[in-house]
Design a binder for these strands. Sequence first.
DNA 1: CGTAATTGAGTTGTGCGCAATTAAGTTATG
DNA 2: CATAACTTAATTGCGCACAACTCAATTACG
Lengths: 159, 159
Amino acid sequence: MTSPPPSDPGLPDAELLRLDHQVCFSLQAASRAFGGVYRDALKELGLTYPQYLAMMVLWEHGPLPVKTIGERLHLDSGTLSPLLKRLESAGLVRRERSPEDERSVIVHLTEAGTGLRERALSVPRTILGATGLSVQEVLALQETLARLTDSLSRAGRTG
Amino acid sequence: MTSPPPSDPGLPDAELLRLDHQVCFSLQAASRAFGGVYRDALKELGLTYPQYLAMMVLWEHGPLPVKTIGERLHLDSGTLSPLLKRLESAGLVRRERSPEDERSVIVHLTEAGTGLRERALSVPRTILGATGLSVQEVLALQETLARLTDSLSRAGRTG
DNA sequence: CGTAATTGAGTTGTGCGCAATTAAGTTATG
DNA sequence: CATAACTTAATTGCGCACAACTCAATTACG
């Protein structure tokens, strides 16, 4: 339990009352801007950004149950199930029940899914270039965002 | 035209290839964490976060056409039209055609909508507290996000 | 004046994110 | 062994975001 900074005196209320909403707002703006860039970059691959994330997890770790993919991406089955079905319809993955635990559905890459990785390799560099940020800034931003997310999640659970 | 840092040599490719996706990922994680906190904070008001944003714009500026609300929130009519209809169904706003320009729909607050502002006043402080960030960090974060969003938008249009 | 181009809302369709529920399989317990 | 508790996916329903489109109103131009 670190003591979070209290309601941060030093600025007038009216100022504070605007700051917070703008943080979230700026965050969503950046998030949506990313979405646009990824949309363009992924269009020729026929993937959306969340689908791309799921594929990245599979490219990196091989066959995984839905549960694990969900944990990596912080997504639940309500989001993943239809997403993975779309990837399956596109012929990129196969879903098979685990013989060991029939509750688990293991998601495998198909040949096409594995092959797609080659064409996806250029995407990250494109995106990084589009951010216009230095590596230092990226790292600092991630550090701040990680702490922010942690605080917010904690507040959601306990507050 | 500032010269954006080039593909940032100095780190191996494999490292860079992971960074970018994690920025967007961290961003979305933070964004979703905010969503959760706002969801809790706004539950008793019967508003979602985007609805809350729309209400804030109206509380601040009075009656506005859909167009202007969309510009403020960076949302198009495809998102706003149903959202505003839900607010109207909830009795918080009224939508009226502008007599000067019959294409415009002016969104007005109702008594209930105006009254809701009182109950919404406590929300921002709650959120700010949940972020666990200092004011300096908030300001720095916003500055970075603004630049990031700007670069990404520019990349989307021109790239 | 009359037609063309533009503008502002709305509609439709796709996909994501989340809550709540259901169903089926597994594990623990009496 | 039988039942209860838990786990894993899937489904349903709602709302947001965006693209593509339609429609009516306005503005610009010949």
